[in-house]
């Protein structure tokens, strides 16, 4: 089994919000990708954005400036 890594996980209230995140990140070349929400996190949408913990500040700035809707930001082993 692949060794788990500490990851930054961002969850969303709906699929449309997750897709909006992906689109904005692609436009600004921000790191990460959509994955299934880890079962350790309770989230509305089945899609989550996974990135490295070191990306948190940059992603939070992007979320704020682009008015993206998210549900939560977590660090967990994925």
């Amino acid at each position: 089994m692949r060794k788990k890594e500490l990851s930054l996980i961002i969850t969303f209230p709906s699929t449309a919000d997750a897709l909006a995140m992906e689109r904005i990140c692609a436009r600004f070349q921000a790191p990460g990708r959509l994955i299934p929400v880890p079962t350790s996190i309770t989230a509305s949408c089945g899609l989550a954005w996974r990135s490295a913990p070191s990306d948190q500040e940059a992603l939070e700035t992007l979320i704020s400036t682009e008015k993206l809707t998210i549900q939560g930001i977590y660090e967990c082993m994925v």
Partner: peptide, 14 residues
């Protein structure tokens, strides 16, 4: 769409 995070599902969602 919206029923998984694999390539085909994400293609539909996108």
């Amino acid at each position: 769409a919206g029923r998984g995070a694999h390539t085909a599902s994400l293609d539909a969602a996108r």
